[in-house]
């Protein structure tokens, strides 16, 4: 199938087997291997990318469903120098092996926008007020991104610091 994917601001015309997931299109066809495959089943979050600004698991959707869509991968974040979020991940040791890290960072970027738009989460007490940037809100909203090295304390601190600075 012929589709056009707009990835990190650049258009790519692809002729793909309809079975190719968005994740495999990125990794195997565009050689953007920053997006990781941890489970291929939407269970680990390592493949999180931004689809038209919203975070999704790239393994759970087929590439051919995204003709004309705008996709941001880790390669499109901090391409001209590390963002404060990426810098904070390094500073707070928000990773060890690094395999889940691109997904964590893309997920955090998407989550920040959800927070900004006032989306409540399971731990938000007042569903009508703007959610606050608490430890619990971050931990809850980042629980779709697994880290077996278990760098959750560093991940929470990195996100809290970088979003706190923006606020």
């Amino acid at each position: 199938m012929n589709i056009t994917l707009r990835v990190n601001g650049e258009s790519h015309d692809l002729d793909l087997d309809p079975r190719v997931s968005l994740l495999d299109a990125l990794r195997h066809h565009l050689h953007l291997t920053g997006t990781k495959k941890g489970c291929d089943h939407g269970q680990c979050g390592a493949c999180t990318v931004l689809l038209n600004g919203r975070r999704i698991n790239a393994c759970l959707t087929l590439a051919c469903m995204h003709d004309g869509d705008d996709i941001t991968t880790i390669e499109g974040i901090g391409a001209d120098g590390l963002t404060p979020l990426q810098q904070a991940f390094i500073e707070h040791d928000g990773f060890q092996c690094g395999y889940c890290t691109p997904g964590q960072i893309c997920s955090a970027v998407g989550m920040a926008e959800e927070l900004r738009q006032g989306w409540p989460s399971h731990v938000t007490d007042d569903l009508t007020a703007d959610p606050e940037l608490t430890r619990d809100e971050i931990a809850e909203r980042m629980s779709g991104n697994l880290c077996r090295c278990s760098c959750y304390p560093g991940i929470v601190n990195a996100i809290r610091q970088s979003l706190g600075e923006q606020a």
Binding site: T33, G34, T35, T73, E75, Q86, I90, F95
Partner: peptide
């Protein structure tokens, strides 16, 4: 760190 937070560290299958 900089390679890992930008997706440029290449793992076995990459």
């Amino acid at each position: 760190g900089p390679l890992k937070v930008t997706g440029r560290a290449t793992y076995a299958a990459e």
